[in-house]
Structures are given as C-alpha cells and as structure tokens.
Amino acid sequence: MHSISDILNIILESIFIGFGIVIPIFVLAMRTSNLKAIAFKELFILTAVQTVRIAGILYFVLWLVHSWEQYNDPVVTGGMPFKDKLFGPFWLVYLFSPLMKFFLSQLFWIKKLYFKKAALITFALLLVILPSQRVLVFVASLNSKDYLPSAWSLSTSDMLIEIALNIVVFIFIVIPILLGSGKLKKILEK
C-alpha cells in the first residue's frame, strides 16, 4: 500500500515527464494561422509551465521531508542506512534526481526560457532526460562497475505504457487548471 506522499510523488513525476514530452510536441507540431488556436496554444504552454514550477517546489519539499524521516529513522526500508544512500555507489540516483528536477523546474521562472521555442523545448527535454531514474541507475551502475546487462533491461512495452500514462496524467492535471482559470472562456468568446 502506498502512502499519500508516495502517490503525490508519482503524480509530480508524471507532471515532469508529461511536460517534457507533450510541450516539445505541442510547440513543434501545432502550426496554424487561426488566432484562437494560437491563443489556446500559448495559454496551454503558460499553464503547463506554471504547473511544472509549482510541482518542482512540492517535489523538492516532499523529498526533503522523506530524507529527514530516513535520516532520523534507524531502520530504513531496504536495510540501507541513510548515510549509505547518500554516500554510497548510488548517491547519484538518490541526490541528483530530486535536485535536478527542482533546479530545472525552477528555471522556468525566467520568462525568456519559456517564451523562446528553442529554450522551452531544450529545457523540457532536459527535465525528462537528466533526472530520469533509468538514466541515473545506468550511469551509477557503470560507476560502481556493475556491468550486468540484466540490470539494465526494461521491456519496451512497459516503458511505452508508462510514458503514455504519464502523458495522460499530465493532461488531466493541466486541462482542469486551464479551465478553472477562466482565461479559456475569454479566448473562446473573442
């Protein structure tokens, strides 16, 4: 059974992954001369950026609380003490991923990053690739001389299903925020 913080972490990670996949596609694929479609696209991107900024803060706070609980708990799940997680061979996975998600999501407070297409696409893709658990486990296993290819395997269908679910969760979070803001009605009325 998952705790509420675990479920919230899964939702927040879905926001990051969905943002990193949907926004580049949305920016590159949606070219139109219809003013309402352009206004909707800009509003969707702005709402998604605002959602990612808030998600980054929540994710980082949850990670800090979880780390503090593990630091103070003498018996940590998995049998690995906090010091071993932080300074062991997989420190990259434990420390780098949350810090990169926080840092990259907070860069979107800079307007130039989400107003320029190239910067928006680049940072959205970095938000998916850099803090990815799979990429970090791969790099950490190379660093600790764990060259077993069986540890790297992942079914392609499982990965595609996971990505599709992350995209669906992202859209089901951004669209209600977009509708609740009331700005979409103003665009449709014009």
Rank of each mutant, 00 (worst) to 15 (best):
H66P: 04
I10D: 11
T156F: 04
T32S: 06
I7W: 07
L62F: 02
L148Y: 08
V135C: 00
K185A: 15
I17T: 09
N72M: 12
S181R: 09
L184A: 15
I177L: 10
F103K: 03
A124G: 10
S97A: 13
L179R: 12
A124W: 02
V128K: 00
L92R: 02
L28G: 04
N143C: 03
P81Q: 04
V52H: 00
L107W: 02
I161N: 04
L142A: 09
A119F: 11
W109S: 11
I161W: 03
I110H: 07
F60S: 07
L113C: 07
W91S: 05
I110A: 12
F26N: 12
V27P: 03
L126V: 10
A39V: 08
F115S: 14
L148T: 15
D146S: 12
A164S: 10
K145T: 13
K111C: 02
V75G: 00
K185Y: 11
F82T: 02
K83M: 05
A140N: 02
I38Y: 08
L142K: 02
V65L: 15
S141T: 06
F16A: 03
S33T: 15
N9H: 01
L184D: 00
E69L: 06
F115I: 14
F90L: 14
I57D: 05
G20H: 05
P89T: 06
S141K: 03
